[in-house]
Design a protein around this nucleic acid. Structure first.
Length: 244
DNA sequence: CTGGGGAAGGGGCCC
DNA sequence: CGGGCCCCTTCCCCA
């Protein structure tokens, strides 16, 4: 099961990601600056500048399925500065004088409105919309609830960390670090039981399971246990559990 | 065929 | 907000 609850799930999202898709530069590296470059295509880190993913899809007023705004309400750009004068205006001339004397404050951004309808419109068009905002990757269809998560994801397309030895590119420095160990042979993680060493902590952890009497992953049907989930999956797919 | 190792990817958490 | 690290997971390959 994917651990990423930040990612907005799409149809068939239960399926594991097809990482090989990311290796198709013709699909993702469409910008003209990469044309004609030999593979691997290694974009410069500047690609991570905000402009690189500027067409972030934010569900603001412009793409909400609402009827056209009254001219005195639009445009709301989504930032408080642009709202400075909308808050001071009474947008609905139909409000009763009694209501005008009261203050209606937005619970989300504390902006005050002299009319309830003004507050309602504000919440519908601004604050509520902001809570629904999402950040879409320009290279694929993934959406994230935070810009940071999106930036992290974008790196899996741009692969800014390049191995100086073989030219292979990675999304994050520590991935490159792990890769470099494959060149240097460095294995800082050793098994306390057999002294076998590993370059990767997770691989050591998986190895430790082989020493364990109680395997972590158990088949629900035959109770056979496995050191890895992938082995359990293989076991299940091989037919043990299909006899219902 | 099965189990294990190696390599790599992703998101989360913490500073 | 970004970097570093952690943990989990997956895929491939080999004995």
């Amino acid at each position: 099961m994917p651990r990423s609850f930040l990612v907005k799930k799409h149809i068939n999202s239960a399926k594991k990601p097809n990482y090989s898709e990311l290796e198709s530069p013709t699909v993702f590296f469409t910008p003209h600056i990469y044309k004609g470059l030999p593979l691997p295509v290694i974009p410069q880190p500047e690609i991570l500048s905000p402009a690189a993913y500027s067409p972030i899809t934010v569900w603001t007023t412009s793409n909400l399925p609402l009827s056209p705004l009254p001219s005195d309400l639009s445009p709301i750009s989504g930032y408080p500065s642009s709202l400075s004068d909308t808050s001071s205006k009474d947008h609905s001339g139909s409000e009763s004088p009694r209501m005008e004397a009261e203050k209606f404050q937005c619970s989300l951004c504390s902006k005050s409105y002299s009319t309830y309808s003004g507050l309602l419109k504000h919440k519908q068009l601004h604050c509520d919309a902001q809570t629904r905002k999402s950040f879409s990757c320009k290279y694929c269809e993934k959406e994230y609830v935070s810009l940071g998560a999106l930036k992290m994801h974008i790196r899996t397309h741009t692969l800014p960390c390049v191995c100086k030895i073989c030219g292979k590119a990675f999304s994050r420095p520590w991935l490159l670090q792990g890769h470099i160990r494959t060149h240097t042979g460095e294995k800082p993680f050793s098994c306390p039981h057999c002294n076998r060493a590993f370059a990767d902590r997770s691989n050591l952890r998986a190895h430790l399971q082989t020493h364990s009497d109680v395997k972590k992953y158990q088949c629900k049907n035959c109770s056979k246990t496995f050191s890895r989930m992938s082995l359990l999956h293989k076991h299940e797919e091989s037919g043990c559990c299909v006899a219902h």
